[in-house]
Design a protein around this nucleic acid. Structure first.
Length: 227
DNA sequence: AAGTGTGTCAACCGCTTATGG
DNA sequence: CCCATAAGCGGTTGACACACT
């Protein structure tokens, strides 16, 4: 599993595997620009790319789409990812849906390689344990997720729908104080602006409610990369 | 300078969910 | 309603780059 070795490895079906070449990227981009996104099933044949539909879709979705924001994550994005993960856990696509320009795969990688380690360090560090979360609203997030899920599951029977309510209830249990309704803000394209949210506790067991995290203390900054 | 260790991230696989006939 | 197929999602892998010794 995983990325195939360098070189032009071919699957049994004759599709290439492994890293994409610039030429393949150009073909895919040109084809999607001309024909539009979607119809992945026939894309390989129509475009002449010797790549399976899954590979084409993934390459486009995770790397080539023009609206993707590439490069380092900002501190604001870091915080938002951490907070969304505390709420949504490993539902990367939901998390990505609330961070403009970022894709699930990118966020998942970032979480697994950096943020998870950083948080693990924070929770075990007696000083960092005192670090508190930025005042952040979750009520609007919570309700928007519920609406989103319900609308996409409108075909469910009542038993299944009621389980959605329990999910929403469980979400509420993450928070230690009621949310003032006047602080609620709708989720929108600027949802990454955490100042839009009323407060909630990121790590209820280790973080004091109501105080703001300004940044990770530099003396405790985790060195996570070598690049 | 060379060898080794470690972190990053693109891309794969398998599973689940959605959709259409 | 059932089945087949496509699309989407999350977990995992391994090549590569860079830091360390």
């Amino acid at each position: 599993m995983g990325r195939a070795p360098c070189g032009r490895v071919q699957s049994e079906e004759g599709f290439y595997k492994g890293p994409w070449t610039e030429e393949e990227d150009a073909i895919l981009i040109a084809f999607i620009k001309a024909d539009g996104e979607g119809n992945w099933r026939t894309l390989p044949k129509r475009s002449g790319l010797k790549r399976c539909r899954k590979s084409c879709r993934l390459r486009w979705m995770n790397y080539l789409r023009p609206d993707l924001e590439r490069g380092n994550f900002s501190p604001e994005e870091d915080e938002l990812i951490i907070k969304l993960h505390s709420l949504l856990e490993n539902r990367w696509s939901l998390i990505a849906g609330r961070i403009p320009g970022r894709k699930d795969n990118e966020i998942k990688n970032y979480w697994n390689s950096r943020l998870r380690r950083r948080l693990g360090r924070m929770e075990s560090d007696p000083i960092c344990r005192e670090v508190v979360a930025t005042p952040l609203s979750i009520a609007s997030l919570e309700s928007s997720i519920k609406v989103e899920v319900e609308s996409s599951c409108s075909h469910l029977d009542t038993g299944e729908s009621s389980s959605l309510d329990s999910i929403a209830t469980n979400l509420s249990s993450h928070f230690t104080t009621p949310e003032p309704s006047d602080q609620e803000a709708p989720l929108s394209s600027d949802a990454h602006d955490i100042s839009n949210f009323p407060q909630f506790t990121l790590f209820p067991s280790v973080i004091r409610q109501g105080e703001a995290i300004t940044s990770t203390p530099s003396s405790h900054e985790t060195v996570v990369g070598r690049r």
